[in-house]
């Protein structure tokens, strides 16, 4: 990123190859819309170019990137809310949500558990889901998550515990739903 900041724009491709998958997974876990997530990934990399002057090489690049990703996601949500209802309705009808139903290949018990876990994660409130996605899927350190979420490291740890409790409750509720 330091090279990009120094004007070597082509180095952005290196960052793209390194991070676009994890960013995509973050967005798709948050909004469950593949197409929108790809748009947002693209947006993040061009925001990096636009705001490259604000990057501090002393700070974690990952934390900076996810701060941008969060802002892109928030801006997009606001913009979507402000859109005319007609367009919004079409958009919602046409988006391709990530399937929540377990596929036929997920017949083995362990795979069923994973499918259930995925559904439980998708049912979590956005703030809890985001925390688990950052901590578990993106492999971010708690210090980095604290920077992204603008809170203390201790707060992140407590919130991760609470999110796990909520995930457990949702998981067992879903299990009961399926059994009954």
């Amino acid at each position: 990123m330091a090279a990009v900041g120094a004007g070597e724009v082509s180095k952005l491709a290196v960052l793209f190859e390194r991070h676009h998958r994890s960013l995509f997974r973050y967005f798709v876990s948050m909004n469950r819309n593949r197409e929108l997530s790809e748009d947002l990934v693209q947006d993040v990399f061009f925001r990096m170019l636009r705001y490259r002057g604000s990057y501090d090489p002393e700070q974690s690049f990952t934390a900076w990137m996810y701060q941008i990703a969060r802002n892109a996601s928030i801006d997009n949500a606001q913009k979507r809310r402000a859109e005319v209802i007609g367009i919004d309705e079409i958009g919602e009808r046409q988006t391709e949500p990530v399937s929540t139903a377990p596929g036929p290949e997920e017949s083995a018990a362990s795979n069923q558990n994973l499918a259930l876990l995925k559904r439980a994660l998708e049912r979590l409130p956005q703030d809890k889901r985001e925390l688990l996605v950052l901590a578990r899927f993106q492999g971010m350190k708690y210090e980095e998550i604290a920077t992204v979420l603008s809170c203390e490291v201790g707060t992140v740890k407590v919130r991760v515990y609470r999110a796990m409790r909520a995930l457990e409750q949702t998981y067992f509720a879903l299990e009961k739903e399926i059994a009954s």
Binding site: R21, R34, E38, L114, L117, R136, F137, Y171
Partner: peptide
């Protein structure tokens, strides 16, 4: 559950993104 989260398959973006 924590360990299970790391086993969830990752969604892959389409080639169109690149």
């Amino acid at each position: 559950l924590w360990r299970g989260l790391s086993l969830l398959p990752a969604e892959e973006p389409s080639a169109n993104l690149r």
